[in-house]
């Protein structure tokens, strides 16, 4: 088999969890909430998903369980920041720390257990396109799902009424409240969606990307997803671009390590994270201050009565 389609396919596999988690956080931030707990929700999704898949011997069930675990954790965050108006940064960081610990506990009996690959979906005819056909149209189900989700989120935010309301709540919660929009309820739903996506991204990591569970395996991908949202600056298509760019770098550095480039492997492994910093730097230097973030991002909302 040719190398190129294979490499492309691994890029998509590496990028998919980033894309899904970032997509969830994108919705959360459009609603004006900053959830720094993506890493925590992801790792809990990875551990729970893997455990559930092993116990039930169903990867699909595992993916579902992982997503729900992420959502459960986000519900904790939601209750705290929405209804107790706690500081979102501190609560998000706490969520990540809690998630890392919780995941270790959930996954402790499953370390090192192998798990078979989930069946790929091959799309007839399209898969016969040279190079790209093999890379794109023989992917796993969640890869396709991620693309559908991107389209749904883009359409939902920009073209539907609920999307308009969600963006309004994120843009200016005081105005939204004075117009009678249910600010806190809308934000809570957005947070739950973010958790669902982060959990699914985590389960993808342990069930499809690596196909084993080890503690700390999310390895900062939640943070990269957060950086992607900043990078996207409100545009879903830039989220896709960013995710595949990072997927590409991740895979490239793996090949570079294997290909005996005379650089310490630690340095190569650090590449995606260095890129994150570089991307954020470029973004903040390039004109538009505020970077398209929602107007009320990170500010707790407490209606006076």
């Amino acid at each position: 088999m040719d190398m190129l389609p294979l490499i492309l396919a691994t890029i998509f596999t590496a990028a998919t969890p980033l894309l899904i988690a970032a997509l969830g956080e994108h919705v959360v931030e459009r609603a004006g909430v900053l959830n720094l707990g993506v890493e925590g929700m992801m790792i809990v999704g990875a551990a729970t998903g893997f455990a559930a898949a092993v116990l039930s011997d169903s990867s699909v069930f595992g993916l579902l369980a992982g997503a729900l675990a992420g959502m459960a954790l986000s519900a904790v965050f939601g209750v705290l920041v929405i209804f107790f108006a706690t500081n979102q940064v501190a609560t998000g960081l706490a969520l990540t720390i809690l998630g890392l610990g919780l995941a270790g506990l959930i996954g402790q009996n499953f370390v090192g257990q192998p798990r078979g690959a989930i069946a790929a979906i091959e799309i007839p005819l399209l898969k016969d396109i040279p190079v790209l056909g093999k890379a794109i149209f023989t992917g796993d189900p969640v890869f396709y799902l991620s693309l559908v989700l991107v389209a749904l989120v883009a359409f939902g935010l920009n073209r539907t009424r609920i999307g308009l309301l969600l963006r309004a709540v994120g843009e200016n919660h005081t105005s939204a409240h004075s117009l009678g929009l249910p600010v806190r309820r809308l934000r809570f739903w957005a947070i739950l969606f973010g958790g669902l996506m982060a959990g699914l991204a985590g389960a993808y990591l342990s069930l499809i990307y690596t196909r084993f569970w080890s503690p700390g395996m999310s390895a900062g991908r939640g943070w990269i997803a957060l950086a992607l949202v900043v990078f996207a600056a409100g545009h879903v298509w830039r989220l896709v671009l960013g995710a595949y760019l990072f997927g590409g770098i991740t895979v490239a550095q793996l090949h570079a390590q294997a290909g005996a480039i005379a650089l310490p492997s630690q340095l190569l492994s650090a590449l995606p994270y260095l890129m994150t910093i570089a991307a954020l730097l470029v973004l903040s230097l390039s004109g538009r201050k505020g970077g398209g973030a929602a107007g009320s991002l990170g500010q707790p909302f407490v209606p006076e009565r």
């Binding site: 963006r167 309004a168 843009e171 107007g295």
Partner: peptide, 21 residues
């Protein structure tokens, strides 16, 4: 009610602002 410090959404168009509530 028309507020003194407007309750508008700056990045939205006029029509979107009117549609929201």
């Amino acid at each position: 009610m028309v507020f003194q410090h407007f309750s508008l959404f700056d990045d939205f168009t006029a029509l979107e602002n009117i549609a929201i509530p």
